[in-house]
Design a protein around this nucleic acid. Structure first.
Length: 876
RNA sequence: GCGGACGUGGCGAAACUGGUAGACGCAAGAGACUUAAAAUCUCUCGGGACUCCCGUGCGGGUUCGAUCCCCGCCGUCCGCACCA
C-alpha cells in the first residue's frame, strides 16, 4: 500500500545501504564501455561540510548519475585535500597532533557526504596527508628535479607574518595572504621553485583548446600569464659618468617606436647599477633603503607616489650619441619584470608622465592621434597611449606605430656592440616560477638532503616516503620540523657524512595538482600513476568547483600535468576537458536588538501583505533583516547541511540547491525555498502513487490503437524527456527542473481528467510510460525518492542501475505548429498549420483569417514574412 | 587605470542567442475542505485609461521584427594592477 507521506529519514539510509552493498558506484578500470570522468574539487577536511559543498557535489552527482544511466563507465571519486595550516593551528590549541584532528574531520565529513546519497566510488578515496599519497608526490618531485623542472634559488618572496611562511604570487590577494589575510612582507630566502615558466607559452596557447572552459577563467589565466612582445635595448653608459666596470644599461620595452620621446632612464632600487652608484653615494643609499621599507607590502606600493633619485649616470640615445639621458633610481620600477630598468617616454606612458611632472623633466609627444595637428598636439597630465602617426622622431616621422616599431627594431638589431646586436626581440611573461617551500610542519616533506660536501643531494627513491615525525612540538616560532631534535639529521646518501634533511614542506597546492590522476589508480604502490590507466580515464570530462580557483589550483594543475607528461607519468597535457565554476550559496543576514549577528535558526519570519518581519524565537525581540551575503561564520548566516538533511532529507536539499538559480550564479538559501522543495517531494510521491494505481504493468507493450488523449500524454512525456536531457547535458539544472515540474504538472492534470471515465489500455500504457520517465528524470537529482517511487511503480531493480529512457523524436515533436501572426510587428492572431506546410500555403491561410483582415483595415500587405515553424509577420 | 561580466514582475528566474517577453517556482491575495490550524485543492498575480496601449537600466540606431546586434551613457559585481 502506498504510504500517504514519503519519509526521507527512513528511506534515504535504506537506499544508501543498498547501493553500498551492491557496489553500484564502483567503477572498474577494465570496463569496456566508454568512460566518463566526473570530478568535483575535493574538500579540505575543515570539520564539517557546508552548503557550498552540498551545491558542488549535488551538481556533480547529477552529471555522474545521468552519464551512468546513459551507459557510460563513470568515474566519480572523492578524497581529501588534507595538509595545511588549520590542522596545525587546531593541534596547537588542543595539544594534539594535526593528523588526529585531520582524520577525525575526515571521518565526520565522509559520514556527512554519505548521508547526501552521492554516487561516489569510495573505494578510491585518498587523503593527501597519507604517506601512501605523498610518497608518490616526493617521487615525482625527484623526477621533476632530474628533468630540470625544479630550481633552488635565492629570491625575494612573499612572507606571511601570521602564518609564518612563504606564499606564492598567486596566493597573495590585494597584498594580503590568501588564508591569513595578513599584509604580506617581502623577504629574501632560498627557496624551491617549480619551473612553471618553462611552459608559459604552452599554458597560454593551450587555453584556446579548452573550449569547454568558461571564457572568464581562460581570460583570467591569460592575463595572469601576461605575455608581451617587446625589445631588449642596450644603452651605452657615458664613460665620464659610469661607475667602475659599468658600460651599458639594458632595458625592456614594448614601445621601441617611442624611443625619440625618451626623457629619462629609471632602474629599480634593487638594480645592480643602483647598488654600484650607492656605494659612493650615501644619499642614494638612503633613498634605496627607504624604497625597500615602502616596498615591504604590496598595498603601500599601490598608493605610493612616483619618486626618483638622479644617479648622475648618463646614457647615450641609441640613435644619437650626443643625446645624453639621465639615469634615475625610481620606486615604481620592478626588478622582477624585464631587466629591472626602463626608458621613460612620458608623453605616452602615464607613470612616466607622473614622474616627469614631479621632477620637471618635460615631455615630447612622438605619436600624434589621427586628425590632430602635430604642431599643436601637446601632452600635459594625461599620457596618450592610442594609435596615430609618428612625429618629432626624425626618420620615423609619418610612420604608423607598427611600422616605427619594426623600423627601430631592424636598425638596432643591425648595430653591433661588442659582438652582440644593440637590440633583440624578446617575449616577456608576467608569470613567475612557483615557489613551493613552506616553513610548516603539516605538509609533504621535500625529499632532499643538504650535505656540506656534496651540497644538495636528492633523497634516494628507495627511502621514500620521507615521513613526517609523529612526535612534533608545534608551539615554537618558525618551522617545527626544523626544531625537531633528531628528524633532520641523516647521513648524506652520497658520501655518508652527517648531513641534514630539507625541513621545508611543499605548498599544499602541490598536493591538489595531481590528485585527479591518482584517482585513476589509487592502489598503485609502485608509482604515482599507471600511465595507461591514467591516459584511459583522463582528461576529466567534467570538473566542477568554485571560481576562486580560476588561477591558483587550475593553473598549477595544468602545469603539473605537463610536468608529469614530461617525466613519463601521463600521456597528455591538459587535465580538465570540461570545467564548470559554480556560484556561491548566500543567505540573508540578521541583526538582533543590540546590533549583534543572529543565526537563522534562532529567528522566526512572518510574511504578510506588508512584507516580511523577523523576531527572535526566544523572547520575541525585533530582528533586522539585512543584506544577502555569502554564508560565513562571522556573520552567522550559515545553515548546517546536517540540520537540513535531518529535517527535510538529502533529496530536498539537493533539489532546492539545483532548482532555484542558474548553477554559475549565486543561489539564495531560504527557508521558504526549502519548504517548497519539500512540498514537491511529497507531491511527486502522491502523484506516483496515483499513477501506480492506473498504469499498465511493467513491460506491457503499447496497444495498437490509442486515443488522442493517450497520444497527447505520450507526446508530453517524450517532449519533456528530450528537453530535460538537453538541459542536464548543458548543466542547466534549473531549467531541467522546470521541465520536470511541467511534466509532473501535466501528468497530474491528465489523471484529474480521466478519473471518472476509467482508463483504457492506451491510457494505461501512457501513464506507465509517463510515470517511469518522470521518475527517471528526477532520479539524478533526488535519487532516494526515485528509488522509492521506482519500487512503487512495480520495478524490482534499482533505478540507480536502470538505463536512461530513449526519447522518441517523432513523439517529441508535434505534427502541427501554432504560429503567432504579427501585423507590423505586433501580435494580432494565431494560426495552427501543418508542421511541414510551405510558406505559400501558410501565407494564404493567414490572409484568409478574419482577424487578420480586420487588423489590416483594408490595407494591402506589402510583404509577408514567414519563418517556418516560428512566426508570420504581415507588413502593411 | 586596464580587462571582463551582468542589469527582465514583490523575489529567484525563463525565452531554443533576431521571432508570442515573464515558462517553472517563491512570496502574496481570494475561495473550497476543516470546530480550528496545518496539509491539500481551485482561482488571481508586470503596469495602465484593460477588445487597446505601455513595458526587459537610460538615450539613440540597424531590422518586417530587438531582452538578444551596433553606438553613447548610468549602475552593480568580478579579475588584474606601477608588468615598461
Amino acid at each position: 500500500m502506498h504510504a500517504e507521506r514519503y519519509n526521507p529519514r527512513e528511506s534515504e539510509p535504506k537506499w544508501q545501504q543498498l547501493w553500498e552493498s551492491r557496489q553500484t558506484f564502483q567503477s572498474r578500470n577494465d570496463d569496456p564501455r566508454p568512460k566518463y570522468y566526473v570530478l568535483e574539487m575535493f574538500p579540505y577536511p575543515s570539520g564539517r561540510i557546508h552548503m557550498g559543498h552540498v551545491r558542488n557535489y549535488a551538481m556533480g552527482d547529477v552529471v555522474a548519475r545521468y552519464r551512468r544511466a546513459k551507459g557510460f563507465n563513470v568515474l566519480h571519486p572523492m578524497g581529501w585535500d588534507a595538509f595545511g595550516m588549520p590542522a596545525e593551528n587546531a593541534a596547537r590549541l588542543n595539544k594534539s597532533h594535526p593528523g588526529t584532528w585531520t582524520y577525525a574531520n575526515i571521518a565526520t565529513m565522509r559520514g556527512q557526504l554519505k548521508s547526501m546519497g552521492l554516487s561516489l566510488d569510495w573505494s578510491r578515496e585518498v587523503a593527501t596527508c597519507d604517506p601512501s599519497y605523498y610518497k608518490h608526490q616526493q617521487a615525482m618531485f625527484l623526477d621533476f628535479l632530474k628533468a630540470g623542472l625544479v630550481d633552488r634559488k635565492k629570491s625575494k618572496v612573499n612572507w606571511d607574518p601570521v602564518d609564518q611562511t612563504v606564499l606564492a604570487n598567486e596566493q597573495v590577494i590585494d597584498g594580503r595572504g590568501w588564508r591569513s589575510g595578513a599584509l604580506v612582507e617581502q623577504r629574501e630566502l632560498t627557496q624551491w621553485f617549480l619551473k612553471i615558466t618553462d611552459f608559459s607559452q604552452d599554458l597560454l596557447d593551450a587555453l584556446d583548446t579548452l573550449d569547454r572552459w568558461p571564457e572568464k577563467v581562460r581570460l583570467m589565466q591569460k592575463n595572469w600569464i601576461g605575455r608581451s612582445e617587446g625589445l631588449l635595448v642596450r644603452f651605452r653608459i657615458d664613460a665620464s659618468t659610469a661607475p667602475a666596470g659599468e658600460t651599458e644599461l639594458q632595458v625592456y620595452t614594448t614601445r621601441p617606436d617611442t624611443l625619440f620621446g625618451a626623457r629619462f632612464m629609471a632602474v629599480a632600487p634593487d638594480h645592480p647599477l643602483a647598488a654600484k652608484v650607492a656605494e659612493g653615494n650615501p644619499e642614494l643609499a638612503a633613498f634605496i633603503a627607504e624604497c625597500r621599507r615602502m616596498g615591504t607590502s604590496v598595498a603601500t606600493l599601490e598608493t605610493a607616489e612616483k619618486r626618483g633619485f638622479d644617479t648622475g649616470v648618463r646614457v647615450a640615445h641609441p640613435f644619437d650619441p650626443d643625446w645624453k639621458i639621465p639615469v634615475y633610481v625610481a620606486n615604481f620600477v620592478l626588478m622582477e619584470y624585464g631587466t629591472g630598468a626602463i626608458f621613460g617616454c612620458p608623453a605616452h606612458d602615464q607613470r612616466d608622465l607622473d614622474f616627469v611632472n614631479a621632477y620637471g623633466l618635460g615631455n615630447v609627444p612622438v605619436v600624434c592621434p589621427e586628425g590632430q595637428d602635430p604642431a599643436s598636439f601637446v601632452v600635459t597630465n594625461v599620457a596618450y597611449d592610442g594609435d596615430g602617426r609618428m612625429i618629432n622622431s626624425r626618420f620615423l616621422d609619418g610612420m604608423t606605430i607598427a611600422a616605427a616599431k619594426e623600423e627601430v627594431t631592424k636598425r638596432l638589431e643591425a648595430v653591433d656592440i661588442g659582438g652582440k646586436p644593440q637590440a633583440a626581440r624578446q617575449v616577456n611573461f608576467r608569470l613567475r616560477d612557483w615557489g613551493i617551500s613552506r616553513q610548516r610542519y603539516w605538509g609533504c616533506p621535500i625529499p632532499v638532503i643538504h650535505c656540506e660536501t656534496c651540497d644538495v643531494v636528492p633523497a634516494p627513491k628507495a627511502s621514500l616516503p620521507i615521513k613526517l615525525p609523529e612526535d612534533v612540538q608545534l608551539d615554537v616560532t618558525g618551522n617545527p620540523l626544523d626544531h625537531h631534535p633528531t628528524w633532520k639529521h641523516v647521513p648524506c646518501p652520497n658520501c655518508g657524512k652527517p648531513a641534514r634533511r630539507e625541513t621545508d614542506t611543499m605548498d599544499t597546492f602541490v598536493d591538489s595538482s595531481w590528485y585527479f590522476a591518482r584517482f585513476t589508480d589509487p592502489w598503485n604502490e609502485q608509482n604515482p600513476t599507471d600511465k595507461a590507466v591514467a591516459d584511459h580515464w583522463l582528461p576529466v570530462d567534467q570538473y566542477i568547483g568554485g571560481i576562486e580557483h580560476a588561477i591558483l589550483h587550475l593553473l598549477y594543475s595544468r602545469f603539473f600535468t605537463r610536468a608529469m607528461q614530461a617525466t613519463g607519468h601521463l600521456g597528455l597535457s591538459e587535465p580538465f576537458k570540461g570545467l564548470f565554476t559554480q556560484g556561491m550559496v548566500v543567505h540573508e543576514t540578521y541583526k538582533g536588538p543590540d546590533g549583534e549577528w543572529v543565526q537563522p535558526s534562532d529567528i522566526k519570519i512572518e510574511a504578510g501583505a506588508n512584507g516580511r518581519r523577523a523576531t527572535m524565537l526566544e523572547g520575541g525581540a525585533e530582528v533586522t533583516i539585512g543584506s544577502i551575503e555569502k554564508m560565513s561564520k562571522s556573520k552567522r548566516n550559515v545553515v548546517d547541511p546536517d540540520d537540513i538533511i535531518e529535517t527535510f532529507g538529502a533529496d530536498t536539499a539537493r533539489w532546492f540547491m539545483l532548482s532555484d538559480s542558474p548553477p554559475e550564479r549565486d543561489v539564495i538559501w531560504s527557508e521558504e525555498g526549502v519548504q517548497g522543495a519539500s512540498r514537491y517531494v511529497q507531491q511527486l510521491w502522491r502523484l506516483v502513487g496515483e499513477i501506480a494505481g492506473i498504469a499498465a504493468p511493467v513491460g506491457a507493450a503499447a496497444p495498437a490503437e490509442m486515443s488522442d488523449k493517450a497520444v497527447a500524454i505520450r507526446r508530453l512525456t517524450h517532449g519533456h524527456l528530450q528537453r530535460v536531457q538537453e538541459n542536464i547535458e548543458r548543466l542547466r539544472f534549473n531549467t531541467a527542473i522546470a521541465e520536470i515540474r511541467k511534466l509532473s504538472n501535466a501528468l497530474s492534470d491528465a489523471i484529474g481528467e480521466v478519473e471518472e471515465g476509467g482508463v483504457d489500455a492506451g491510457l494505461a500504457f501512457a501513464f506507465r510510460e509517463g510515470g517511469d520517465v518522470l521518475v527517471n528524470l528526477f532520479a539524478p537529482m533526488m535519487p532516494h525518492l526515485a528509488e522509492e517511487c521506482w519500487q512503487a511503480l512495480g520495478h524490482s531493480t534499482a533505478i540507480a542501475e536502470a538505463a536512461w529512457p530513449v526519447a522518441d523524436a517523432a513523439l517529441a515533436t508535434n505534427d502541427t505548429v501554432t504560429l503567432p501572426i504579427q501585423i507590423n510587428g505586433k501580435k494580432r492572431a494565431e494560426i495552427t498549420v501543418d508542421r511541414t506546410a510551405d510558406n505559400a500555403t501558410v501565407e494564404a491561410a493567414v490572409l484568409a483569417l478574419d482577424s487578420v483582415q480586420k487588423a489590416l483595415e483594408g490595407r494591402t500587405p506589402k510583404k509577408i514574412i514567414v519563418v517556418p515553424q516560428r512566426i508570420v509577420n504581415v507588413v502593411a
